[in-house]
Design a protein around this nucleic acid. Structure first.
Ligand SMILES: [Mn+2]
Ligand SMILES: [Mn+2]
Ligand SMILES: [Mn+2]
Ligand SMILES: [Mn+2]
Lengths: 219, 219
DNA sequence: AAATAAATTTAGATGAGTCTAAAAAAGTTA
DNA sequence: TAACTTTTTTAGACTCATCTAAATTTATTT
């Protein structure tokens, strides 16, 4: 029903509102979508007219219930297609995002529900992000960044905060993947780097890397 | 690279040129795409400027090598997605066309080649239409319409000429599907209907139906 | 509280794809 | 051949999504 363009705006606003719950700025949307602020202003008027966002000039915007439902369905489709690409077509986790950006716009609930069943109802995508269910409900996992756990605390790698190709490929070079067990061995205050033991193997990770790696710690 | 719209024009021209090898008329394209002749005229100028078609005003159009290659790749994607939908997601053969119309525009050779391998390199789609290979080569099957074989001749159902929902669903009600073995028992000259034996079961088929059912006869 | 800077919106323009109505070309019939 | 019909193209207008440049509002500094 909604055009590709509208769907992309809604998805962008949804994503940004996770960080800026008070209202997403025009500039932030422009940057996320790769367009100009003037273009965004125009579009916000249209989205508002269609009751997809709450919008008052100069005040930033938030999704309406209707807008959020649409955004979540697109995210659901994006993540399920990513699972398909990795699990069934053997793509690597750093290769699937752009394809999913296209596939997410295929308009069929029946298709996505069958795909979900075909994939055995996965709850997380290849980057550890939760997959909204048919009603748009997301079950978030309790997980924390590696920077937030103490020395000698153990955990399992459950996701990435930065899912850029570059970061994912870096993790590949280090042999780090979802499901790995790790323990923090030492924190160097100097540069906040950490040495860890990952499935028995010792390695050093920069602060930058630790910030972007999520783990679930054992109760 | 080419827009959805351009891809749909190329596909339509390709399809129509199978019936009208001398050159496809503006009106025929308009009807196939569901648009107006004026719109098609405009588009033909653009396609011609992009060297995708041969075009002289008032003379009808044919695809260039470049245009045909693009069209065949879209057809390849369409048919492979249809196989996926039927074989992996358990859609019926009368349900997949519209979804494939969307999926065919996903722009990735890597994706479609992996999908092809995942499906075990099928040679035909769920309606019996041949799937072009990576280079755009189509291996056509020798098959004839049921109207073109003699009494007591046996054959195997290999495809449909009309792949409308209505016809496919009619075939479902009669239990006719690809792979069925049949023999023509009798032809009634009055209305050109035929009685056949299909996997042992006797039935009568109208001329209309026989025209649109393809079979491969045993040498 | 002014002045300045930054963010946002408006104004006006563009290109893709579409439409209706009118003109032109091609085809058919008398 | 001339008249009529059908097909195709052109002309002009519209929507959607975008842009640049200018105006306006809000935020920050002096
Ligand atoms: Mn992604
Ligand atoms: Mn998108
Ligand atoms: Mn089809
Ligand atoms: Mn299409």
């Amino acid at each position: 029903m909604a055009s590709f363009t509208v769907e992309n705006y809604l998805k962008a606003i949804y994503g940004l509102s996770q960080k800026q719950p008070g209202g997403v700025s025009t500039n932030a949307i422009a940057e996320a979508i790769g367009t100009k602020a003037a273009t965004v202003s125009d579009m916000l008027k249209k989205l508002s007219a269609n009751k997809l966002i709450h919008y008052k000039k100069y005040q930033g915007t938030t999704l309406t219930t209707k807008g959020a439902a649409l955004a979540l369905n697109i995210i659901r489709k994006h993540r399920l297609w990513e699972v398909f690409l990795v699990e069934k077509l053997d793509f690597r986790w750093d290769e699937v995002h752009d394809l999913a950006e296209e596939l997410e716009h295929i308009d069929s609930d029946e298709l996505i529900n069958r795909l979900e069943a075909f994939l055995d109802n996965p709850k997380f995508d290849p980057h550890g992000d939760p997959i909204p269910d048919k009603s748009g409900v997301i079950h978030r996992r309790e997980q924390v960044a590696l920077t937030d756990i103490q020395v000698n605390k153990a955990g399992v790698v459950t996701g990435v905060k930065d899912s850029s190709k570059e970061f994912l490929q870096y993790l590949d070079t280090q042999g780090i993947e979802l499901g790995n067990k790790l323990v923090i061995k030492e924190v160097f205050e100097y540069d906040k780097s950490r040495t860890i033991e990952l499935d028995g193997k010792a390695m050093t990770l920069s602060h930058q890397v630790c910030k972007n790696l999520y783990v679930k710690t054992e109760a």
